[in-house]
């Protein structure tokens, strides 16, 4: 039963991602991107990472896609969609390298299956304390420094974006 759900969600995510690439207009690819992010969120739920699924919907499908849609609507992109350019050699080489990369990844995934290590976060622990409680205990003790560094990075990103996009007079 789980397998059926995984296959449906993974297939929809792959199809939506392909449509992101093949859509003619940038706006349509952004909307297909939202579908792809939602499917990835469902895959997170199937992997018992509900908190990440909510974050995926709020941060990616909400905040980042709103950024991108704003940018698309601010820029007038209609002109360059009509231009057709011949396929470059570098792109063909890139695609060949990509096929090789795909083969390598599949071979690695087939050779070394996932070896289960029994770590500290068992299902009993999660059921006793709740998933978000366990997560936040770790986040604010073991991962406190990366958490603070991430907040500094976000502040720097916002300040940098404002400074870059400010119109100099």
């Amino acid at each position: 039963m789980e397998l059926v759900f995984i296959l449906i969600c993974g297939g929809l995510a792959a199809i939506a991602s392909l449509l992101v690439i093949f859509a003619r207009s940038t706006l349509h690819s952004a909307l297909w991107m939202v579908v792809s992010f939602f499917m990835v969120a469902v895959i997170y739920v199937l992997l018992h990472a509900q908190f990440l699924a909510m974050l995926q919907i709020i941060v990616y499908a909400g905040a980042i896609m709103m950024f991108i849609l704003y940018a698309i609507m601010m820029l007038n992109l209609r002109r360059e969609q009509d231009e057709k350019v011949p396929v470059r050699n570098s792109k063909i080489f890139g695609l060949v390298a990509l096929v090789v990369l795909f083969m390598e990844l599949v071979m690695v995934a087939l050779q070394h299956g996932v070896e289960a290590i029994h770590g500290p976060i068992t299902d009993q622990l999660v059921q006793a304390h709740g998933r978000v409680a366990v997560l936040s205990n770790f986040l604010f003790s073991d991962y406190l420094l990366p958490f603070e560094v991430a907040s500094i990075l976000l502040t720097a990103g916002v300040v940098g974006a404002v400074v870059l996009a400010k119109r100099t007079k």
Binding site: Y70, L75, G160
Partner: peptide, 30 residues
Amino acid sequence: ANQSLDGIFMVLFVMAVAAAEAAVGLAIFV
């Protein structure tokens, strides 16, 4: 698979970096 939370935290920080990257990258596009 490993009954650990490390991978989830890695994804959490990937999201944070992606948000900062989106802000700066789109400013550069503009």
